[in-house]
Design a protein around this nucleic acid. Structure first.
Lengths: 117, 117
DNA sequence: ATATATTTTCATAAATCGTGTATATGTATT
DNA sequence: AATACATATACACGATTTATGAAAATATAT
């Protein structure tokens, strides 16, 4: 990961709407309509922010019929985490750690219950 | 760490000059003149970027006579790393399921809503 | 082909950011 | 007090980003 890529990734995350989107994707892959429901971001703006996130390489996309499914690129995000880890005191011994560190908060997102009917 | 703090930290790091500054501080505490030498950023601009980094809570400062020493706040940076780790550390949902279009957990109503014509 | 659902792109005004120059605030030294 | 040095802030202004609504591209079904 080059410094420029790193900066793009950090910039992409350093924005309230985009952070909200990424948080909504933590629970798993979602299509644009689902992300819209989960985040409350109106459609065109959402697509714009998704484009930024995509350009930063933070997500993968998959197309199923009319729908486009977004999911976090965990390899890239792990790289980002490790890169920041080099700034934190502990020299990264977690670059090789396979298992996710303790906490997984499954319900952090508002995304869970998008009630429509 | 609130979302707003997180965003400020990410924004602070997502900038070439500021990233260079933080990288220069990785080796240990430095005063402004030393950072200027290490990064080649001219004094006023440097002070401005340091102010951003300071406001984001990424560094601690210590004053010795005329000199101001900056050092990375490793606790904050470790928190930042862990926070990003929550985006990276969730495999095994359907990450590798390249199979059929998703018909998933009942709570995500949007897709179902879209199909009910 | 026509209609419809989903997502992306365009356009533009408002806000924010980036950077250089000048100026200010401290703190020691004489 | 006056000087010198280290650091911080203020200001200005062009560049980038954001918000928002309209239009367009893509894919599917009838």
């Amino acid at each position: 990961m080059t410094d420029e890529n790193l900066i793009d990734a950090l910039k992409a995350l350093g924005h309230p709407l985009r952070l909200r989107i990424v948080e909504a994707l933590r629970a798993g892959e979602r299509n644009v309509g689902e992300i819209e429901q989960a985040t409350g971001i109106a459609q065109p703006g959402l697509s714009q922010q998704l484009a930024v996130i995509r350009a930063a390489g933070l997500v993968q996309t998959r197309k199923a019929a009319k729908l486009v499914y977004y999911s976090l690129d965990q390899a890239v995000l792990a790289g980002l985490r490790d890169r920041i880890g080099t700034f934190a005191g502990t020299p990264t011994d977690k670059a090789s750690a396979a298992g996710p560190p303790p906490t997984r908060h499954p319900a952090t997102g508002v995304a869970r219950f998008a009630r429509l009917s």
